[in-house]
Design a protein around this nucleic acid. Structure first.
Lengths: 169, 169
DNA sequence: CTCATAGACGTTATGTTATAACATTTTATG
DNA sequence: CATAAAATGTTATAACATAACGTCTATGAG
């Protein structure tokens, strides 16, 4: 087995560029099955395919890339098909929308309630989901001081991951 | 003069729904002049108009709304005209792009270096820029722990502002 | 002054992302 | 099987953004 992976889905926060990605995917699909089961939701073949396509890498994937990939796979598909699947998956917390990129990534720990943050590497394009409780809470509290009740948070940062810093000259 | 305003541009963090908005606009334009002066940048009539249109309210404004407003004002305009002005203004920190809304707001304290957060009310639509240093720093530090060097942050939260909570039933 | 330059702006066309609206099929269930 | 709800198909269009290239204008060097 490869490099620095641990056994938890959340381990992608520390993943290497050459981690065992097959495992990421397998875990993600297994989690998805469990989440759907638990919620009484149906992970149809189409939804599953979209989820798999998103999990092909840790680079956020655009809706139309997914669409093209589905068509390459021989399936007939149109934008609403993809967006419906995305809406479904996001609703269950199985994927996250990356607002600054108009793209989507698989959620690395969909089973737990979380308010995550995302790091986006300008070098390799990979997204890394992290969860710093003090950020989510600090934002909630800071807003509350102004009487503002937060329902939803979007926290995205771009920059360079460790390996892309080494690579850069 | 109206309600709870103080004299600092940053006061919009606490602004009331019926604050003296003329003052917001006047201050914003004055700041813009100073920033441009300081940077050797030119606040052309067109750029100034876009900035004024963004400052018509604290609700994030889409590029095509700006475009329509410019046309209503009798000026001929096309999308690149607007996007160029937006790019210019954002480059100087005079406006911020709201990624989760594909829209823009005037920056409430453009003179100072800052890594702000934005609160978006789902009721009235207003955006409020806040600056909680521990959030920006916590994110930077948390990323650094993973070897990730943050260059840029996007922190947006949606929910209900104080007055929209009162209003809601 | 006039010429060269760079920045700003005009103009056309197109690329990219997302959703509205309504028809049809599939699935779960009584 | 009948039925209702969920999922999907289908067409069309809305909404957001930029590429590419041409023209104008302010400004400074000579």
């Amino acid at each position: 087995m490869s490099s620095a992976d641990s056994n938890t889905p959340a381990s992608n926060a520390n993943r290497d560029h050459d981690h065992d990605h097959g495992k990421c995917v397998a875990e993600a699909l297994a989690s998805a099955e469990r989440v759907c089961e638990a919620q009484g939701a149906r992970l149809t073949p189409q939804r599953r395919q979209v989820l798999e396509l998103i999990w092909r890498s840790h680079v956020p994937v655009g809706a139309y890339e997914i669409l093209d990939a589905m068509r390459d796979g021989g399936r007939r598909a149109d934008p609403p098909t993809v967006y419906r699947a995305l809406e479904f998956l996001a609703g269950l917390g199985l994927i996250h929308r990356i607002s600054t990129r108009n793209a989507f990534i698989g959620c690395s720990h969909p089973m737990s309630e979380h308010r995550a943050q995302v790091l986006l590497c300008d070098g390799c394009g990979q997204a890394t989901e992290i969860e710093i409780g003090t950020i989510a809470q600090g934002l909630t509290d800071g807003a509350a001081d102004l009487g503002f009740a937060i329902a939803d948070q979007t926290v995205e940062a771009s920059g360079l991951c460790r390996s892309c810093q080494s690579t850069a000259h």
